[in-house]
Design a protein around this nucleic acid. Structure first.
Lengths: 341, 341
DNA sequence: GTGAAAGCGCTAACAG
DNA sequence: CTGTTAGCGCTTTCAC
C-alpha cells in the first residue's frame, strides 16, 4: 500500500471529476477550461491542499519559472537597491529569483552559473561585464537569456543595462575642475576584477589629462568599500600640510569615510577641502554636509534589466543583444565648493 | 527526427559506455561506482557539456537543493548582512537560495511561501515571528523545515534564531537612564506587522516604567526607516525650547537622521542632546559622533539560522523546534553622555 | 558494480 | 471543452 504524503494532480482531478490533463490546463491555460469546471478544480485544490510541483513542470523543457541572479555580495548597500528593483520587476512577471553570491571571485561565479543552470533558470542576471571566458561560453552554449547589470558598454557579449561609469567619472571630474581645483586626490577601490571602479577611474583620469591636471601617484589612494577603511586611508593625506584641495572618491561610502576623516582632523568640508562621491546612495543627500555625487539610478537599472530579461525570455523574436545606458546625473550638493583664491 | 538541444544523461551514458543508471549513481552515490567508471563518466560529461537537471531530480520527491528565503525587502542595510551570512552558510551546505520579497505585506508573504513550495524548497527562512496563521499552518501541513530569523522568542511555532529585541530595548533604555536622563523622547518606526520594532519599544517602555520615567505622547515620534524622514520628523521636537535631553531611536538609521537634525539645528551631540540607536549597523561606529547603540550580530543570526535549517533538513532525528538567542551588547560610544546638571 | 525496467508528477499533442 | 496517450530526464528498486 502506498501512502502518498501530499496531494498530486491526480487526487485533485479525481475529486473534481475531471482528468489530470484538465487540471493541468486549468493552471496553464485557464481560458481553455470552462469556468464552472475551473471552479470545481479550484475547490478540489483547496480541499486537498494541493501545491503544484514546478519541478515536474520544468522537466518538460518548459518554464521553470525561475531566473538566476549572481552578485558579488548582498552585504552592501551598493547592490541592494539594484537587486530589490530587479527582483520586484521579475516577480511582477511571475518569476522567482534564485540568488547566489560569489564574493568577487569570478571562478566561483562560473560555478554558480552552472549550479543555476542545473536548476534550469530561464534567464540570468549578472553584475558588471567582467566575467570569465568560460562564463560567457557557457551562456552562449546553453543560449541562456542573460543581462549584465550596473555597467553600460556599447560593445558587450551579452545584453547590458547600466550607468555609463566612465561617464560618471568624467562628470564628477569635470565638476571638480569647474570649481577651480587643481590639487586633486583620488580615493578608489581596487580595480582588479571590478570593471565599474575601473571605468570610473578611467573617466576621471581622462578628464584630468585633458585639462592637463596631474595626479601624483601618492595622491591616488586605494581602499576597500568601507567607511572605516576609507577614513583610515585618507587621514594621513589630509593631515599633510601640503594637502589637496579636493578629493574624488570611488563611491559614496568611501566619500563618507573621507569626510569623516577630514572632520575629525578639524577640517571643514567643503571650505577646507571639497569631497565628491559617485553613486548617490540612499542617505548621501542627508549627510552633513550633503554629498556632491553622481546619481546612478540603480533602481532603474535593476528594473530595466528585469524587463529586458523578461522580453528576452518571452519574445521569441527579440533575441538580439540589447544595450541600455541609464543616464547619470551630477548631484551638486554641499560637500564641494569653488576653490578660494 | 528529434533534435535534442542539450546533452542528457543518456548521451553521457552512451559516450561513457555505461547505462544511464550508472551515470545517475555517479552523481548521487559516487562511492557505489568504480573509480575508473567514474572517470569515464566525468570525461563524457565534460565533452558533452552535460548539465544535470535538478528539476528531474526533484520530481522523485527527493532533494531540490534549494532553500527559500522570504524577506520584507532587500533594499535595506538592515537585512543585508543577515541575508549574506545566511546565503553563504547555505551555499557551504550545497543549497541554492531562492529569495522573495514581500514589502512588509504579510498576505504577500503567504503567497510567496506557496510559490516557493511549488519549487519544492527543502526549507524556508523567514524574517521575524509575526506571520499570518495561514503561513504557519501551511508550514505545518507540508512539514516544511523552517526558521525565523532576526527575533528570538522563547515560545514560537517554528525554530527561531535572533537577537532578543526586547532585551535590546531594555539595554539601551537602561543605559540612557544610567546617564541621568529623565526627559527622554522616542523615535520609532511603526510597529504594525513589525514585531522587531514592537519588541524593542516594549523593552524600552518597560524599563522606563520601572524607573518611573514618563514619556509624553508627543515625545513618542513615528517614522519610517529613512535618514531623511527621521530627520524631518525629529526637527520640530529638537527646535522646541522645552526639548528632551536624550532620544532613543528605533534603529541606527533613524538615530543618524536624528543626529543630523540636531546638528543642523546647531545642537551638539551629545552635550546638548544624547542620541542612541539600536542595531549597530556597519558605519555606525564611524559616524561623527560615533553612535551609541546595541549590537545585534546579524551575521551570526543568519549563519546560525542556516546551520539550524541544514540540521533540520538533513538530520531526520532533530526535528524539534530549535530556539537560539544571539546575545545583544551595548556599544557605548560618543553620541550619548551623562546629563549635565 | 552495473543494467533493465518501472515510474516520479506533470504536460502536449491528438482525438472526440 | 475535455479525456487519452505518450512521454519529459532522471532515479531507484531489483536482478544479474
Amino acid at each position: 500500500m502506498k501512502t502518498k504524503k501530499y496531494a498530486d494532480i491526480i487526487d485533485v482531478a479525481n475529486l473534481a471529476n475531471v482528468s489530470p490533463a484538465t487540471v493541468s490546463r486549468c493552471f496553464n491555460h485557464p481560458d481553455k477550461v470552462r469556468p464552472d469546471t475551473r471552479k470545481r478544480i479550484q475547490l478540489a485544490v483547496e480541499s486537498t491542499g494541493y501545491i503544484r510541483n514546478r519541478a515536474a513542470q520544468a522537466i518538460h523543457g518548459r518554464r521553470s519559472g525561475t531566473v538566476g541572479l549572481i552578485v558579488p555580495t548582498l552585504d552592501n548597500a551598493i547592490f541592494a537597491t539594484l537587486i530589490q528593483a530587479f527582483s520586484e520587476q521579475l516577480n511582477a512577471s511571475g518569476f522567482t529569483m534564485l540568488v547566489a553570491t560569489h564574493g568577487y571571485d569570478l571562478d566561483r561565479e562560473y560555478q554558480l552559473l552552472r549550479s543555476l543552470l542545473e536548476h534550469r533558470v530561464e534567464g540570468i542576471g549578472l553584475i558588471g561585464l567582467d566575467h570569465k571566458d568560460e562564463t560567457y561560453s557557457l551562456i552562449d552554449r546553453r543560449e541562456t537569456r542573460s543581462v549584465a547589470m550596473w555597467n553600460y558598454h556599447p560593445d558587450t557579449r551579452i545584453s547590458c543595462v547600466g550607468a555609463d561609469n566612465s561617464e560618471a567619472g568624467k562628470l564628477i571630474a569635470q565638476h571638480v575642475l569647474d570649481l577651480g581645483h587643481k590639487r586633486i586626490a583620488l580615493v578608489f577601490p581596487d580595480t582588479f576584477e571590478n570593471d565599474r571602479a575601473a571605468n570610473r577611474l578611467e573617466g576621471v583620469l581622462s578628464i584630468m589629462n585633458k585639462a592637463g591636471v596631474q595626479i601624483p601617484p601618492e595622491w591616488h589612494l586605494n581602499t576597500i568599500y568601507s567607511i572605516k577603511n576609507a577614513r583610515e586611508v585618507s587621514a594621513p593625506l589630509l593631515s599633510s600640510p601640503n594637502r589637496p584641495t579636493a578629493i574624488i572618491a570611488g563611491n559614496d561610502v568611501i566619500a563618507q569615510g573621507v569626510i569623516y576623516a577630514a572632520q575629525s582632523l578639524g577640517l571643514n568640508v567643503p571650505t577646507d577641502i571639497s569631497v565628491a562621491g559617485i553613486g548617490d546612495f540612499s542617505g548621501s543627500a542627508h549627510l552633513l554636509p550633503s554629498l556632491t555625487t553622481i546619481k546612478l539610478r540603480s533602481n532603474k537599472v535593476g528594473q530595466t534589466a528585469a524587463i529586458i530579461l523578461d522580453k528576452l525570455i518571452n519574445d521569441s523574436e527579440n533575441k538580439n543583444i540589447q544595450r541600455v545606458a541609464i543616464e547619470v546625473e551630477l548631484m551638486k550638493r554641499q560637500s564641494t565648493c569653488r576653490l578660494a583664491i
